[in-house]
Amino acid sequence: MTTTTDTTEPTPLETPATPRSTVVRDVSRVVAGRLVHAALVIYAAYSASFFLLFVLPGDAVLARIGTTDTVGVADISDLDLDVLRDEVGLSDSLWTQYWNGIAGLFRGDLGSSLVNDRAVTDLLAEALPNTLALAGLSLLLSVPLGFLLALLAVNPRSRLVRSFAALVPSAYVSLPVFWIGILFIYLFSITLGWFPSGGSQSASALVLPVAVLALLGAAQFAQVLISSLRTELGTTYASVTAPAKGASRFYTLWHHCLRNAAFPFLAVFGLRVGQLLGGTVVIEVVFSRTGIGRLMVDSVKAVDLTVVLGLVVVLAIVYVVVNMLVDIGYSLLDPRLRRRASTTQEVTS
């Protein structure tokens, strides 16, 4: 961090101006606090899913021979199963497996698949690009779309237009994601023949799944933005001061209200990333695309514990990192939170 000279002039206001060095110190304190918290959350997520998955009534080694019940394994003697268990490390005590897993996590090694011995990180690296393209594109599109919908629900003079535009997002979030996917396939692929109904090779196959997820994100963002924009429009500065100085409704919304309404939006943005990753699982199955979703469904069907655990941990890390960035963004934008965070830390430490 560069040392900053205090260039702020003394202000006549009562509150002392914050020198930039304090801002840097406060923000870095927030960052440090969030980092520790994030590490704890990831550790807790890993431990919980490890014990959920590995303290199980069934026998994980059966996944290795491609069956989940004992019907087809009558000809395999117990000795063979023990050898198999040794091979994949399932015969170690639970704690040894747990500590090996934690140690592997630090090295970036998530173990290997119980079914085909491939490293979980390789499987993930194969599946991730497709999913990231889908999730990233839809997130990118959903932000401007959400803002547009929210402005449509707040800005027009006609009450009818406004209430209709406000109804659209709340109706859309009540729809089952997989069903919208099927509806889109029926409308745009089977009836109109504009886009392919599935697959993951061509770019045009990306259009329909991205549309489903982007609309869902936009609807969620719009819901939050509409309610916060309505609150902002009711405040004195927007309902009295701005019209008094001659600002139009749109000018008030665009220049004054949007900035204040952005805070709840940020919170939802962080949550949306988590839901989006869950939504892509279903959407990838609907549109028969390869990716994280397909990998997840396949490994759950094959009871491939290590792959399931790896997926859960990686997605938890993505979620935690995004939300950490959102929190830090908060403290950069809002000095009150920054100060509160630093005082609570001083109290507790």
Partner: peptide
Amino acid sequence: GVGTEAVMAVPAVLLALAVITTYG
């Protein structure tokens, strides 16, 4: 609080799938 956030960090569908992996 940390426990709650750890559960939140895993998308709901994935959490459910993990439970289903174990209990059928």
